[in-house]
């Protein structure tokens, strides 16, 4: 890199989440750079909601997010695998009842 790269300023990174419409859960959209939370919200709106893609936005400093690691996916989610009794398909019901949908 050239000399000028040491002098330049980069704003912190924020992750952007938006709610697509009333009652829907928030979704991750991407990220923006901004000096503070207020500007992050404005930048997020201009970047990810120019066409009413959202009715509400969250911005979170990217370094504040803790994520599960993909290598541990198997072990991490393992507790869910052997509990078939958590699903309705595990249970049988009388035929007559089954028909009524």
């Amino acid at each position: 890199m050239t000399e000028s790269s040491t002098n330049t300023t980069e704003w912190p990174l924020w992750e952007v989440f938006y709610q697509p419409s009333d009652g829907k859960p928030f979704e991750h959209a991407g990220s923006v750079h901004a000096p503070d939370a207020e500007m992050a919200l404005l930048n997020a709106r201009d970047t990810y909601a120019r066409r009413n893609e959202g009715i509400a936005i969250w911005v979170v400093p990217s370094d504040q997010i803790t994520a599960s690691s993909p290598e541990d996916r198997g072990a991490f989610f393992d507790p869910a695998n052997d509990k078939a009794y958590r699903h309705p398909q595990f249970y049988s019901v009388p035929r007559a009842v089954k028909k009524r949908k």
Partner: peptide, 9 residues
Amino acid sequence: VRKAAKEYA
């Protein structure tokens, strides 16, 4: 601009 905004923050 980037500097000023960062300093303001």
